[in-house]
Amino acid sequence: MSKRKSSHRSMNGKNFIILPIIFSLLILGICYAVVMPSARTFIKMGSLFFSDSEKNFSNDYNNIFVPVAEEPEEGTSEVSKVEEPKTVPLSSIEYPKIGEQFGELIIEDCQTDVKLFFGDGYVELNNGVGIYAGSFIPGYGKTIMIAGHNCTFFNGLKYAKVGQKVKIRTSYGNYTYEITDIQIKNAKDKSAYDLAAQTENLIMYTCYPFDALGFYPDRYFVYGKLVSGPVIDKKS
């Protein structure tokens, strides 16, 4: 029997791979062409909700505070006293990010010695007191607005009186403020603060009344003026 030439292409297994692949690409291509024009907007908006990496839910915070030498007491005659610089270059400062501890706030007369954060969110106020991110840091020459819980870190503000000293220690300098005014205002009262002020002023606030049970609309504002501390030189 002679050899038969056969071309049983239908038995060629390749058709069972190539054809389905071609079909698949066609199907997906058609779906893409049909769906994409109308879905483009949704996909673009949806991309807002996806990052380049997985979300971090940690409540840990970064601490960039490194204490500098204390200011010498007035009237001391120590030979070794170190004078604080009058200015500090902006370029030498590590400006804090939201959520970072960058200093400490001390009001001795109010038994307050707490961590100072930049930002006033959940983590910051659960660990200390925090500067509103729409205000600035000590030495910058503008408004410093600090929030704290009245039942915890700012409970001592109830003892605040005009004339008391507020110390803020940072990695770039130590600052002293003097309390100039105390007011009780509604939380929605915008006259309680001036974020556009071009002179350094300190505002500390917390919920009011203290040691009360319930949620109140009033806030306890404590205002202070700068007494000493290096001015941040923005030009250097």
Binding site: S51, D52, S53, E54, K55, N56, F57, S58, K97, I98, G99, G119, D120, G121, Y122, E124, L125, N126, G130, Y132, A133, G134, S135, M145, A147, G148, H149, N150, F154, A187, K188, A192, Y193, L195, Y205, T206, C207, F215, R219
Partner: peptide, 24 residues
């Protein structure tokens, strides 16, 4: 910042209810 939880800014009002409403 993309990919992180680092806050850069937002529409939060200056005077808070001392922190809780911006919590998780």
């Amino acid at each position: 910042k993309k990919g992180g939880s680092t806050n850069v800014g937002g529409d939060d009002k200056p005077v808070k209810d001392t922190g809780f409403e911006t919590g998780a």
